[in-house]
Design a protein around this nucleic acid. Sequence first.
DNA 1: AAATTGAATGAAAACGATTTCATCTTAAAT
DNA 2: ATTTAAGATGAAATCGTTTTCATTCAATTT
Lengths: 338, 338
Amino acid sequence: MAKVGIKDIARIANVSLATVSRTLRTPDLVQEATRQRVLDAVAESGYKPNRMGMNLRTQRTGNIMVIIPDITNPFNADLIRSIEETASNNGYAVLLGDTQSSPEREQQYVDLVEAGQADGMLYFSGRNPFNINPDKPLLEQLPTMVNSNEELDLDGIDKVLLDNAKAASEAVQYLLDLGHTRIAAVTGPMNTKSANGRLQGYRQALQQAGVEIDDKLIIEGDYHIDAGVEATEKLLRLKQRPTAIFCFNDDMAIGAINVLQANDYRIPEDISVIGFDDILYSTYVRPALTTVSQPVQEIGRLCTEKLIARLRGSHDEPTTTYVSHKLVVRDSTGPAPK
Amino acid sequence: MAKVGIKDIARIANVSLATVSRTLRTPDLVQEATRQRVLDAVAESGYKPNRMGMNLRTQRTGNIMVIIPDITNPFNADLIRSIEETASNNGYAVLLGDTQSSPEREQQYVDLVEAGQADGMLYFSGRNPFNINPDKPLLEQLPTMVNSNEELDLDGIDKVLLDNAKAASEAVQYLLDLGHTRIAAVTGPMNTKSANGRLQGYRQALQQAGVEIDDKLIIEGDYHIDAGVEATEKLLRLKQRPTAIFCFNDDMAIGAINVLQANDYRIPEDISVIGFDDILYSTYVRPALTTVSQPVQEIGRLCTEKLIARLRGSHDEPTTTYVSHKLVVRDSTGPAPK
DNA sequence: AAATTGAATGAAAACGATTTCATCTTAAAT
DNA sequence: ATTTAAGATGAAATCGTTTTCATTCAATTT
């Protein structure tokens, strides 16, 4: 079966290429009889317009690139699911750029967007991948994009963000209210805005409560389970152990819980644990995890809708939308031991 | 900044379009001095060859489509991670088709491949999305593809599969060896090959051991946590309760564990639970989950390599590669209660 | 009846690259 | 010294669409 193209349809239906194209794109412009002849030819031959030709002519691919550090993190997986759904409902497909936090990979995928393999991108990283010429207007130098999760240090682009400092400070305040004063923090990578924001919230809450900050209780993690494991092992070795551990994401909290239980600590009687994200598994872990919930589905939808609005030609002023978090109390937190 | 194209480079470097293209694609064909002039122009102007033009001319996009039912399932997320890595190492990008098991969505993404938006696809579904004309050779009617996870009912295409029946039968045999005879099965959707294969293995093992099969102990699930929850609730209501539950994936096993613990059953003393997949979280659940491990990373790599080999022009006979499973015993299984 | 309008269609340009083919130059072989 | 071959380059074709512009024809207006 030689691949059938628009020329073949034109021949079969005895019309010009233009009429075939019009029948498919703007059927109103073609007469009933002709239209029917073309549609018959299309149905009979199983013709599907070739996207490469179409893309080139229309200067759009229908793809949006999603650049994200780690798809195996359930928070990110949920995010992509939501993006994919919104994109698909609007006729876009998702090009996946799982970068494993590698700057080279980020660059590679951004290059792809700039080369026109996708019409725009959702950028979930804080690293600036652009060579910007300060003499020219910024916006003309950037691909159509929306930034989220990790804030990018650029003004004038659309963003969807969470107030990390506030969220973290509420989590810590909740622990303080339970009587905890030795509260450990297992952070994300300290070269990310999210980790810095959350740490700042942690510090603020403690200072406001007049609790001295002990740097030994702050351990840098990387948002993977193992980091939670290692950090907790380290914390348990301290002479003055914490009575609560605030992990900057749920995966690390799950790692922490595991180590604690392996060493016969009761949660929350001996040590409280609190996470961040509210992934599905945090409900199914024992004890169920108290955590700061992010509206992941909403984030995905908002990002995608913002991007698509731009792609459809909106020239509104770029905005930053803040989504709201919520502390979800489950069974991993309780009053501080006496 | 008007977008710079190959014509601009040609003008700046004072050469023809052809020479610019050659400098970038086949530098050996152009003289040192000219090449340098072109490269300078490219560097200076920040020129990136436009992929739409390139794709049309070369008749390839560099994309591979991954059609998969549910990216939020960690097994699938790991799979995609592995695919993405292999693809990226070979210069391909991944177009993500998360179908949420909807046939319409599957069709939509397959159509996209057939329209040339991707060069080939990895198809993780058992539903045949093709209109096949039995008079014509099969292979000419299919896009370049590899099938895995859920076997497709088509001969003559590349596949990567697991022996589900054997794997399940080993899991059940292990439970039988522990003295269990009332062994429940929480299956996947019974319109999938994977669930049928595993159920067949379950039946075989029981029959071989002379244990009568009780249909009340077989409950259809859908591979989501909730299905494990509901199935287990149902099983616990039975007058003759099972002493072991074999869930056809880990997510459902996690749901099962949760219900059991909520109702004060000890695992494994009162009831054993066994899963399938060996996702990361199965290690971090309490008790850690005994499960049938699939080499997810290997599956992803194999699928992608097979596909890319085809895309590079291999005309070897299509093959089915079987990957091997492994029973991983952890803490959720033990001897049957007296 | 002539002029004007509008609808339907086709011819050809355009999108931005790669690649074939022809041309020209220079070096090697006779 | 002539032929041959090889190397470097450019002109133009090509990939498969969409869309502009021109043309035709019938219907409407004057």
